[in-house]
């Protein structure tokens, strides 16, 4: 039940992101005479502080959060896994240097680093992706390194070394396939974190630029009118919560599924 709920929400999210731009929506159509109106036949979820239909903006905001999370998690997984696997496989000085770099990154609160980087790079969605990817790889690298360390001494890896396989072939063909399960689980949690971080950055004005919609910027615009038109902040807020909850529930489910012991117990 939980899984189907999560999958339905996530499918709807993806559908909004992919099909949204093909629909005849007007997310940027300012109509001051309709500002802050509640749900009606013309605007099913009501309108925002500039009279723009919230439903249309929600669909376009889904696109922003979907693509940001897709790119950031994609880049972070690829970069982090590769760096972590190299660190774990080679050990010695390479491992020491990479581990220290990871430690330095982990010493700072991630979101503060992202805010600082996004501030330096300037506002814009591309810069948000760059800033989040710069920080996001660290978690994956740490996990990949730990997993690689436990695999390096396994027989199939030692056999590949004895047969003269090149290190990068061993990493790609004999190590990464075996460490992918925990990384996939980590990636699902990463998606949830990125959606929230993007919303936070857009809330601070560092994300998408107006009039483009993002759930974070919609929440930011809505907070100013919470006392008079609470639907402006409730609509994107609840949507964001549902998507993040679904991603997390799915991550939990995946973790249980990948864990053989839990599966056997069930």
């Amino acid at each position: 039940m939980k899984t189907w709920f999560s999958i339905s929400i996530l499918l709807l999210w993806m559908l909004m992101a992919v099909v949204g731009p093909l629909l005849p929506l007007q997310p940027d159509e300012v109509d001051l005479s309709r500002k802050m109106q509640g749900p009606s036949a013309q605007a099913l979820l009501g309108s925002d502080d500039l009279g723009r239909p919230l439903l249309h903006r929600l669909v376009y905001g889904a696109q922003t959060s979907f693509f940001v999370s897709f790119f950031v998690v994609g880049i972070s997984v690829i970069l982090g896994t590769f760096i972590g696997a190299v660190s774990g496989y080679f050990s010695g000085v390479i491992d020491l240097v990479i581990t220290r770099i990871i430690d330095i990154f982990l010493a700072f609160p991630g979101i503060l680093l992202v805010i600082a980087l996004a501030g330096l790079l300037g506002p814009g969605i591309e810069n948000v992706i760059i800033a989040m990817s710069c920080v996001g790889w660290v978690g994956f690298a740490r996990l990949a390194r730990a997993q690689t360390l436990s695999l390096v001494s396994r027989d199939h890896v030692q056999a590949a070394i004895a047969l003269g396989s090149r290190p990068f072939t061993i990493i790609l063909k004999h190590i990464i396939p075996l460490i992918s399960a925990p990384l996939i689980v980590e990636a699902t949690f990463g998606i949830a974190a990125v959606i929230i971080a993007e919303a936070g950055l857009s809330f601070l004005g560092l994300g998408v630029q107006p009039p483009s919609a993002s759930w974070g910027s919609m929440i930011r615009d809505g907070t100013a009118y919470m006392l008079v038109s609470s639907h402006i902040v409730i609509v994107p807020g609840v949507t964001l919560m549902l998507v993040v909850l679904s991603v997390n529930l799915l991550g939990d489910r995946l973790r249980d599924w990948f864990d053989v012991r839990t599966r056997l117990k069930n």
């Binding site: 300012v30 001051l32 500039l50 506002p123 004005g205 630029q209 107006p210 009039p211």
Partner: peptide, 23 residues
């Protein structure tokens, strides 16, 4: 930002493409 978005929209109506930059 709200005022800027309205101005941007009004200028778009006559065919002027305005990009907003907030700092």
């Amino acid at each position: 930002v709200r005022i800027a978005t309205i101005l941007q929209h009004q200028l778009k109506e006559v065919g002027i493409d305005v990009k907003l930059r907030t700092y």
